[in-house]
Amino acid sequence: MVNCKEIFELISDLIDEEIEIEEELHREFLEHISECPHCGPFLNTFKKTVNLCRRIENIRVPEEVHISFWRSIRVEIYKKKK
């Protein structure tokens, strides 16, 4: 029988689909999760957290940073080699 601890330890692997688990064990996992008052909410909130992180968007490089950055890059790559 699977227990909460096993679910907890494998949850990242499970959602990243890193491990190939046997069908029977997988069924046991799902059964446990659907019945257990701890693992169901745990799995759902864990997955949700990862999904929120995945949706974080990049911020744009501020204009003044972008300009001074490019200036220094160009100075570096076009400076005369000694």
């Binding site: 330890e9 701890h38 909410p41």
Partner: peptide, 19 residues
């Protein structure tokens, strides 16, 4: 480590759970 927290409220389908 390895111990599952108990009594977890499930906020995953809360409409506020969005960026």
């Amino acid at each position: 480590e390895g111990e599952i927290p108990k009594d977890i409220p499930d906020w995953s389908s809360n409409p506020e759970a969005t960026l």
